[in-house]
Design a protein around this nucleic acid. Structure first.
Lengths: 100, 100
DNA sequence: TTATCATATCGATATATATCGATATATAGC
DNA sequence: GCTATATATCGATATATATCGATATGATAA
């Protein structure tokens, strides 16, 4: 848990937006899969579509976000699904509160 | 109040440290002035001494911090004193909480 | 096993940030 | 008006970040 590194990742509008969209995947993204109770998040391509940035850029963003642990990545078949890591996000806010 | 810009400013250890030191100026800095109830903060040179970075760098850091309003600057004579802007810092944390 | 698709990584380039020393500005004291 | 002092700004250079297209990797399907 490194505040500086997380702040760097959160110094970009698109990355903040992605985190926000992932709060409500059903309304922000097309349905992922015909599996009930699928709970692994959203695939890279859907996130890419929504931002309009290149595939490599979005993949890079999501890798950054994963490195500081604010998202959880799950590979299923050829897809990688990303969802919020609520635990770490909460911890980050708490740490920020006590640090600032 | 721009989260992205504040996050950029807070993506640096020294700037986070400065904000932390300013929580307790009496113990972190030499006495400022022989005026009782002096409440305008700490001058640039004392902050510079503590960091060991160049005067221009620290002045630049404090200017950045002032631009996003997390510190208050007061010019008295040839000195500029900086202190925390508690109101904005609180607002920032609140906004972050509701955004993330 | 080959072709296809989703994602990750690479390499390049443009832009931003970090940091310094030098210079400018503003104030105070002589 | 000069001089000294504190701070801000400027200009330069090094490093980091943003972003893309191209390529590599890994999985599925034909």
């Amino acid at each position: 848990m490194n505040i500086i590194e997380i702040n760097k990742v959160l110094s970009n509008k698109v990355r903040i937006d992605i985190l926000d969209w992932l709060k409500d995947m059903e309304s922000n993204f097309p349905p992922q899969i015909n599996v009930p109770n699928f709970n692994n998040g959203v695939c890279v391509c859907h996130i890419q579509d929504k931002t309009g940035l290149s595939q490599s850029t979005i993949s890079h963003y999501l890798t950054m976000m994963h490195k500081v642990d604010i998202v959880i990545a799950t590979r299923i078949g050829k897809w990688t699904y990303y969802k919020r890591n609520e635990k770490v996000i909460k911890e980050y806010i708490k740490l920020l509160q006590s640090t600032l």
